[in-house]
């Protein structure tokens, strides 16, 4: 991991909805190739922060750049260089696995030849060969999520944003999902992932904890556990979350 290579940087990034400050002047950096965990209780502002970085939401203040591009001035370049997987499982359920891969690959401008190769590889890798022509809607949730992740990185983005990607699946599937994440990280894709599963936090290289729209702590899981004299990330989270004034939803 190259610590000098900054792929995401945010400075005093702020988002207000009327009187409510969802994200309050957060400042952080994400390095190339790392798995960066973005943690916080529900309503702490993680999703909002992530959406600003992806160009889904306009910041109210502050500066940020993603993959070397400014989020105000160059959102189109950013879009070309990132992948995104949302909380809601998001593939087309009425299309087959193959059609989904071809559609999402296609809108990222992959050529037919590359697309064909990729989709065959991907289906092989996920062990879905005999289901290539199955409608996605009929797959189990765990498979859908793995597929959604693979589709999110089909265009080899430099960064992929995952918004609570493992919500609602069993621990084994979650573990398998993280294997996929590691594989992607090995290929040099930076992973920016929000979660509120503390066991997942342990898998990250570095994590930031958001409380009430602010970043309360940012370091590697080991360092954080030392700092808070805690056994597990759960304890770290409880200590930090207890400071929260904002009610979670």
């Amino acid at each position: 991991m190259d610590a000098k290579n900054i792929v995401i940087s945010a400075q005093d990034l702020t988002k207000q909805f009327g009187d409510f400050t969802a994200v309050d002047q957060i400042t952080f950096e994400v390095y190339g190739g790392e798995i960066f965990g973005f943690l916080g209780a529900n309503g702490a502002g993680k999703t909002t922060a992530m959406r600003m970085l992806c160009g889904l939401s306009k910041p109210s203040g502050g500066k940020a750049s993603v993959a070397g591009f400014d989020i105000y001035r160059e959102p189109e370049q950013i879009k070309r260089n990132i992948g995104y997987m949302s909380q809601k499982f998001s593939l087309y359920e009425d299309l087959t696995i193959k059609e989904n891969i071809q559609f999402f690959g296609g809108i990222y401008g992959l050529s037919d030849r590359v697309l064909k190769e990729k989709s065959t590889d991907l289906i092989q890798q996920l062990g879905l060969a005999e289901h290539a022509h199955t409608l996605v809607g009929s797959l189990p949730l765990g498979w859908k999520q793995k597929l959604a992740f693979s589709v999110a990185i089909i265009h080899q983005p430099s960064i992929v944003f995952l918004d609570e990607p493992t919500g609602g699946v069993d621990p084994i599937t979650r573990r398998q999902f993280w294997d996929l994440i590691y594989e992607a990280a090995d290929q040099g894709i930076t992973i920016f992932v929000t979660t509120h599963y503390m066991d997942e936090a342990e898998y990250c290289n570095r994590i930031s904890m958001m409380v009430d729209g602010k970043i309360a702590a940012l370091d590697s899981p080991t360092a954080l556990k030392q700092e808070f004299a805690a056994e597990t990330m759960d304890d770290v989270f409880f200590q930090l979350a207890r400071q929260a004034k904002r009610k979670s939803d």
Partner: peptide, 13 residues
């Protein structure tokens, strides 16, 4: 509703 709109909006389309 299904969340695919977000994916489209994040895409370069």
């Amino acid at each position: 509703e299904k969340g695919t709109m977000e994916i489209l909006l994040v895409s370069p389309m």
